[in-house]
Amino acid sequence: MVVPKIVPPKTSKGKRALEKREPKIFENPKVAMLIKGGNTSQIVTEALRDVGMLKKPHAISYKKKNIVRPFESEHSMEFFSDRSDAALFLFGSHSKKRPHNLVIGRMFDHHVMDMIELGILDFKSIAEHVGTKVAAETKPCLLFAGESFEKEAEYKRLKNVFIDFFRGPVIDTVRLTGLEHVLQFVATNGKIYIRSYRAILKNSGCQIPRVELEDIGPSFELVMRRTKLASDDLFKRACKVPKEAKIKKTKNIAHDPFRNKTGRIHMERQDYSKLQTRKVKAFKSLKKEKAEADK
Protein backbone atom coordinates (compact mmCIF):
# COMPACT_ATOMS: atom_id res chain seq x y z
CA MET A 1 0.00 0.00 0.00
CA VAL A 2 1.40 3.37 -1.06
CA VAL A 3 1.00 6.06 1.58
CA PRO A 4 0.29 9.47 -0.01
CA LYS A 5 2.96 12.06 0.67
CA ILE A 6 1.74 15.00 2.75
CA VAL A 7 3.02 18.25 1.28
CA PRO A 8 3.24 21.05 3.89
CA PRO A 9 1.73 24.40 2.87
CA LYS A 10 4.13 26.96 1.43
CA THR A 11 1.98 30.06 1.98
CA SER A 12 -0.06 31.41 4.87
CA LYS A 13 -3.20 31.17 2.71
CA GLY A 14 -2.59 27.46 2.16
CA LYS A 15 -2.00 26.98 5.87
CA ARG A 16 -5.32 28.68 6.71
CA ALA A 17 -7.11 26.50 4.14
CA LEU A 18 -5.75 23.31 5.74
CA GLU A 19 -6.63 24.53 9.23
CA LYS A 20 -10.16 25.24 8.05
CA ARG A 21 -10.50 21.61 6.91
CA GLU A 22 -9.22 20.13 10.17
CA PRO A 23 -11.72 18.44 12.54
CA LYS A 24 -13.30 20.83 15.04
CA ILE A 25 -14.99 20.39 18.39
CA PHE A 26 -17.91 22.53 17.24
CA GLU A 27 -18.60 21.99 13.53
CA ASN A 28 -19.12 24.77 11.03
CA PRO A 29 -22.51 24.97 9.26
CA LYS A 30 -22.64 22.12 6.76
CA VAL A 31 -22.20 23.02 3.10
CA ALA A 32 -24.42 21.39 0.44
CA MET A 33 -23.41 20.59 -3.14
CA LEU A 34 -26.06 20.95 -5.87
CA ILE A 35 -24.98 18.75 -8.78
CA LYS A 36 -26.57 18.29 -12.20
CA GLY A 37 -26.50 14.89 -13.84
CA GLY A 38 -25.72 14.08 -17.47
CA ASN A 39 -29.35 14.65 -18.43
CA THR A 40 -31.72 16.93 -16.50
CA SER A 41 -35.21 18.31 -17.05
CA GLN A 42 -36.46 21.85 -16.55
CA ILE A 43 -38.20 20.77 -13.33
CA VAL A 44 -34.99 19.30 -11.88
CA THR A 45 -32.97 22.40 -12.85
CA GLU A 46 -35.47 24.74 -11.18
CA ALA A 47 -35.66 22.49 -8.09
CA LEU A 48 -31.87 22.56 -7.66
CA ARG A 49 -31.85 26.33 -8.11
CA ASP A 50 -34.60 26.90 -5.51
CA VAL A 51 -33.00 24.58 -2.94
CA GLY A 52 -29.76 26.51 -3.48
CA MET A 53 -31.62 29.72 -2.66
CA LEU A 54 -32.90 28.17 0.59
CA LYS A 55 -29.39 27.00 1.53
CA LYS A 56 -27.55 30.27 0.80
CA PRO A 57 -24.78 31.01 1.64
CA HIS A 58 -23.93 27.39 2.57
CA ALA A 59 -24.44 25.97 -0.92
CA ILE A 60 -22.21 25.25 -3.91
CA SER A 61 -23.91 24.91 -7.31
CA TYR A 62 -22.20 22.98 -10.10
CA LYS A 63 -23.41 24.54 -13.35
CA LYS A 64 -21.92 21.97 -15.74
CA LYS A 65 -23.46 18.57 -16.32
CA ASN A 66 -21.73 15.61 -14.69
CA ILE A 67 -22.25 12.03 -15.87
CA VAL A 68 -22.56 10.54 -12.39
CA ARG A 69 -24.64 7.63 -11.04
CA PRO A 70 -24.45 7.84 -7.24
CA PHE A 71 -26.05 4.45 -6.53
CA GLU A 72 -23.71 2.64 -8.91
CA SER A 73 -20.47 4.41 -8.01
CA GLU A 74 -19.83 6.65 -5.00
CA HIS A 75 -16.31 7.74 -5.99
CA SER A 76 -17.48 10.80 -7.95
CA MET A 77 -19.58 12.13 -5.06
CA GLU A 78 -16.70 11.56 -2.65
CA PHE A 79 -14.34 13.40 -5.03
CA PHE A 80 -16.69 16.40 -5.17
CA SER A 81 -17.07 16.31 -1.37
CA ASP A 82 -13.31 16.31 -0.79
CA ARG A 83 -12.79 19.05 -3.37
CA SER A 84 -15.51 21.35 -1.99
CA ASP A 85 -15.19 20.35 1.69
CA ALA A 86 -18.95 19.72 1.72
CA ALA A 87 -20.88 17.21 3.83
CA LEU A 88 -24.27 17.36 2.04
CA PHE A 89 -25.31 16.91 -1.58
CA LEU A 90 -28.37 17.03 -3.80
CA PHE A 91 -27.99 15.35 -7.18
CA GLY A 92 -30.55 15.89 -9.95
CA SER A 93 -31.11 13.80 -13.08
CA HIS A 94 -33.82 12.80 -15.54
CA SER A 95 -34.35 9.60 -17.51
CA LYS A 96 -37.18 7.53 -18.94
CA LYS A 97 -36.86 4.96 -16.15
CA ARG A 98 -36.57 7.56 -13.36
CA PRO A 99 -38.08 10.88 -14.48
CA HIS A 100 -37.41 14.08 -12.51
CA ASN A 101 -35.07 12.36 -10.08
CA LEU A 102 -33.37 13.80 -6.97
CA VAL A 103 -30.81 12.04 -4.76
CA ILE A 104 -30.30 13.67 -1.36
CA GLY A 105 -27.43 12.47 0.81
CA ARG A 106 -24.70 13.28 3.29
CA MET A 107 -21.08 12.40 3.93
CA PHE A 108 -19.04 11.27 6.90
CA ASP A 109 -15.30 11.89 6.64
CA HIS A 110 -15.83 12.57 2.88
CA HIS A 111 -17.39 9.12 2.37
CA VAL A 112 -21.03 8.59 1.44
CA MET A 113 -23.07 7.73 4.55
CA ASP A 114 -26.75 8.04 3.52
CA MET A 115 -28.39 8.37 0.11
CA ILE A 116 -32.13 8.56 -0.58
CA GLU A 117 -33.58 8.79 -4.07
CA LEU A 118 -36.75 10.88 -4.48
CA GLY A 119 -38.95 11.33 -7.52
CA ILE A 120 -40.66 14.66 -8.18
CA LEU A 121 -44.37 14.17 -8.91
CA ASP A 122 -45.33 17.84 -8.69
CA PHE A 123 -43.27 21.00 -8.28
CA LYS A 124 -43.98 24.71 -8.00
CA SER A 125 -40.99 27.03 -7.97
CA ILE A 126 -40.42 30.19 -5.93
CA ALA A 127 -40.98 32.33 -9.04
CA GLU A 128 -44.53 30.96 -9.41
CA HIS A 129 -45.51 32.08 -5.90
CA VAL A 130 -46.63 35.69 -5.60
CA GLY A 131 -45.84 37.60 -2.42
CA THR A 132 -43.04 38.89 -0.23
CA LYS A 133 -40.11 36.50 0.11
CA VAL A 134 -37.96 35.76 3.14
CA ALA A 135 -34.52 37.36 3.42
CA ALA A 136 -31.48 35.21 2.70
CA GLU A 137 -29.70 33.42 5.59
CA THR A 138 -32.94 33.25 7.61
CA LYS A 139 -32.91 30.19 9.87
CA PRO A 140 -36.07 28.14 9.19
CA CYS A 141 -38.40 26.45 11.65
CA LEU A 142 -38.78 22.78 10.59
CA LEU A 143 -42.15 21.06 11.10
CA PHE A 144 -42.74 17.34 10.49
CA ALA A 145 -46.11 15.60 10.28
CA GLY A 146 -47.06 12.02 9.49
CA GLU A 147 -46.80 8.66 11.26
CA SER A 148 -44.25 7.40 8.71
CA PHE A 149 -41.62 9.78 10.09
CA GLU A 150 -42.00 8.11 13.52
CA LYS A 151 -42.58 4.43 12.68
CA GLU A 152 -40.81 3.44 9.43
CA ALA A 153 -37.01 3.15 9.51
CA GLU A 154 -36.40 4.67 6.05
CA TYR A 155 -38.66 7.65 6.73
CA LYS A 156 -36.99 8.16 10.13
CA ARG A 157 -33.61 8.41 8.42
CA LEU A 158 -35.08 10.69 5.72
CA LYS A 159 -36.38 13.00 8.46
CA ASN A 160 -32.90 13.06 9.98
CA VAL A 161 -31.36 13.90 6.58
CA PHE A 162 -33.87 16.73 6.02
CA ILE A 163 -33.03 18.21 9.44
CA ASP A 164 -29.31 17.96 8.66
CA PHE A 165 -29.82 19.57 5.24
CA PHE A 166 -32.12 22.49 6.07
CA ARG A 167 -31.46 23.37 9.74
CA GLY A 168 -28.88 26.09 9.01
CA PRO A 169 -26.34 27.40 11.54
CA VAL A 170 -26.63 26.49 15.23
CA ILE A 171 -27.80 29.45 17.35
CA ASP A 172 -28.16 30.06 21.09
CA THR A 173 -31.37 32.10 21.24
CA VAL A 174 -34.45 32.65 19.08
CA ARG A 175 -36.24 35.98 18.72
CA LEU A 176 -39.99 35.70 18.06
CA THR A 177 -40.08 38.50 15.48
CA GLY A 178 -37.09 36.93 13.70
CA LEU A 179 -38.91 33.62 13.16
CA GLU A 180 -40.01 34.33 9.60
CA HIS A 181 -39.39 31.13 7.62
CA VAL A 182 -41.24 27.83 8.16
CA LEU A 183 -40.52 24.58 6.28
CA GLN A 184 -43.14 21.86 6.61
CA PHE A 185 -42.61 18.18 5.72
CA VAL A 186 -45.64 15.87 5.55
CA ALA A 187 -45.49 12.10 4.87
CA THR A 188 -48.80 10.45 3.99
CA ASN A 189 -50.02 7.73 1.62
CA GLY A 190 -46.50 6.97 0.41
CA LYS A 191 -45.86 10.58 -0.63
CA ILE A 192 -43.80 13.40 0.86
CA TYR A 193 -44.99 16.99 0.68
CA ILE A 194 -42.65 19.93 1.30
CA ARG A 195 -44.03 23.45 1.72
CA SER A 196 -42.23 26.72 2.44
CA TYR A 197 -44.07 29.48 4.33
CA ARG A 198 -43.44 33.01 5.55
CA ALA A 199 -44.68 33.60 9.09
CA ILE A 200 -46.67 36.82 9.52
CA LEU A 201 -47.33 38.13 13.06
CA LYS A 202 -50.57 40.14 13.38
CA ASN A 203 -52.31 41.91 16.23
CA SER A 204 -54.57 39.65 18.27
CA GLY A 205 -55.71 42.01 21.03
CA CYS A 206 -53.41 40.39 23.60
CA GLN A 207 -49.69 39.90 24.22
CA ILE A 208 -49.47 36.75 22.05
CA PRO A 209 -49.68 37.70 18.34
CA ARG A 210 -51.80 35.84 15.80
CA VAL A 211 -49.63 33.87 13.37
CA GLU A 212 -50.52 33.47 9.71
CA LEU A 213 -48.56 31.45 7.12
CA GLU A 214 -48.13 32.63 3.53
CA ASP A 215 -46.96 30.10 0.93
CA ILE A 216 -43.79 31.48 -0.71
CA GLY A 217 -42.42 28.33 -2.38
CA PRO A 218 -40.89 26.11 -3.42
CA SER A 219 -43.50 23.34 -3.12
CA PHE A 220 -42.66 19.68 -3.70
CA GLU A 221 -44.64 16.48 -3.99
CA LEU A 222 -42.15 13.61 -3.79
CA VAL A 223 -42.11 9.82 -3.71
CA MET A 224 -39.34 7.67 -2.27
CA ARG A 225 -37.63 5.35 -4.78
CA ARG A 226 -34.30 3.88 -3.63
CA THR A 227 -32.29 4.13 -0.42
CA LYS A 228 -28.74 3.36 0.65
CA LEU A 229 -28.42 3.94 4.37
CA ALA A 230 -25.47 3.68 6.72
CA SER A 231 -25.24 0.79 9.15
CA ASP A 232 -26.16 1.33 12.80
CA ASP A 233 -22.48 1.24 13.85
CA LEU A 234 -21.44 3.85 11.28
CA PHE A 235 -24.43 6.06 12.12
CA LYS A 236 -23.57 5.84 15.82
CA ARG A 237 -19.94 6.73 15.12
CA ALA A 238 -21.00 9.72 13.00
CA CYS A 239 -23.26 11.01 15.80
CA LYS A 240 -20.56 10.75 18.47
CA VAL A 241 -20.00 14.04 20.31
CA PRO A 242 -16.49 14.95 21.57
CA LYS A 243 -16.00 15.11 25.32
CA GLU A 244 -15.04 18.79 25.09
CA ALA A 245 -18.40 19.62 23.49
CA LYS A 246 -20.44 17.90 26.18
CA ILE A 247 -21.79 19.99 29.05
CA LYS A 248 -20.49 18.68 32.37
CA LYS A 249 -23.22 17.73 34.80
CA THR A 250 -23.34 19.82 37.97
CA LYS A 251 -25.63 19.19 40.91
CA ASN A 252 -28.89 21.19 40.76
CA ILE A 253 -27.85 22.84 37.46
CA ALA A 254 -29.34 21.88 34.09
CA HIS A 255 -29.33 23.18 30.51
CA ASP A 256 -32.26 23.54 28.12
CA PRO A 257 -32.05 22.65 24.36
CA PHE A 258 -30.71 26.16 23.66
CA ARG A 259 -27.83 25.63 26.15
CA ASN A 260 -29.28 28.16 28.62
CA LYS A 261 -28.32 27.40 32.23
CA THR A 262 -31.09 26.80 34.76
CA GLY A 263 -30.52 26.16 38.48
CA ARG A 264 -32.42 24.94 41.52
CA ILE A 265 -31.88 26.60 44.91
CA HIS A 266 -32.80 24.83 48.16
CA MET A 267 -33.64 27.13 51.09
CA GLU A 268 -34.63 26.49 54.70
CA ARG A 269 -38.25 27.06 55.71
CA GLN A 270 -38.73 30.71 56.68
CA ASP A 271 -40.26 31.92 59.95
CA TYR A 272 -42.88 34.38 58.72
CA SER A 273 -43.33 35.87 62.21
CA LYS A 274 -39.79 37.29 62.00
CA LEU A 275 -40.23 38.51 58.44
CA GLN A 276 -39.58 42.26 58.09
CA THR A 277 -42.71 43.95 56.73
CA ARG A 278 -43.68 47.49 55.95
CA LYS A 279 -44.21 49.61 59.09
CA VAL A 280 -47.76 50.99 59.12
CA LYS A 281 -49.58 52.66 62.04
CA ALA A 282 -52.56 50.34 61.62
CA PHE A 283 -50.33 47.31 62.24
CA LYS A 284 -48.96 48.90 65.48
CA SER A 285 -52.45 49.40 66.94
CA LEU A 286 -53.30 45.78 66.16
CA LYS A 287 -50.19 44.59 68.03
CA LYS A 288 -51.14 46.65 71.11
CA GLU A 289 -54.67 45.24 71.12
CA LYS A 290 -53.31 41.70 70.80
CA ALA A 291 -50.87 42.26 73.72
CA GLU A 292 -53.68 43.58 75.97
CA ALA A 293 -55.90 40.64 75.07
CA ASP A 294 -53.14 38.21 76.00
CA LYS A 295 -52.80 39.86 79.45
Rank of each mutant, 00 (worst) to 15 (best):
A47G: 02
P140R: 10
T277I: 14
K20D: 08
F258K: 11
S204Y: 09
N39K: 12
R49Q: 09
V170M: 12
I6G: 05
I216M: 03
Q184P: 00
R198Q: 07
P8F: 08
G37V: 09
Y62N: 03
A86F: 02
E46R: 15
I265D: 06
C141H: 15
F283Y: 07
T173D: 15
E117V: 06
V130K: 11
K191H: 03
T250G: 09
A86D: 05
K65H: 13
H100G: 02
E46S: 15
T188A: 15
L143Q: 13
L275F: 11
T138L: 03
Y197K: 02
P257C: 10
E78P: 05
K249N: 09
M33N: 11
A282N: 12
V31I: 14
G131R: 10
Y197P: 08
M107D: 03
T173I: 09
R225T: 14
M115N: 02
F108D: 02
Q276K: 12
M1T: 10
N39R: 15
G52W: 01
L48C: 05
K246T: 10
G190T: 06
E46N: 15
N28H: 11
I43K: 11
S219W: 03
F108I: 03
E22Y: 11
M77F: 05
K287D: 05
E292P: 02
K55Q: 00
N252Y: 13
Y272G: 01
K30H: 14
K56A: 13
A17V: 05
D114K: 00
I6F: 13
N189M: 05
R278G: 10
E19N: 12
G119N: 04
Q276F: 15
Y62K: 06
D172E: 13
E150D: 14
Y272N: 07
F80E: 06
I192R: 01
V241K: 12
E152Y: 05
G92R: 06
G263F: 06
F283W: 09
G178L: 07
T132F: 06
F258L: 14
L176K: 15
M1E: 10
H266S: 13
F185Q: 01
K133W: 04
E78M: 11
I126S: 07
Q276D: 10
G92Y: 02
G146Q: 02
H181F: 13
V103Q: 02
I163A: 08
V44N: 03
E244W: 04
G205I: 09
P23Q: 08
F258Q: 14
I200C: 12
N160L: 09
P169V: 07
V130L: 12
E289T: 12
F89Y: 10
L121W: 00
K13C: 01
P218K: 01
V44F: 04
K36H: 12
I253R: 12
P169Q: 05
R106Q: 04
H181N: 10
T173M: 12
L118F: 01
T45K: 15
K64G: 04
T177F: 14
M1P: 13
M115H: 03
E154L: 06
K251L: 09
P140W: 01
K281S: 10
D85P: 00
I35H: 04
L54Q: 03
P140A: 06
A291R: 15
R237Y: 04
K243T: 11
G263V: 13
F71G: 05
V7P: 01
S219C: 13
L34V: 04
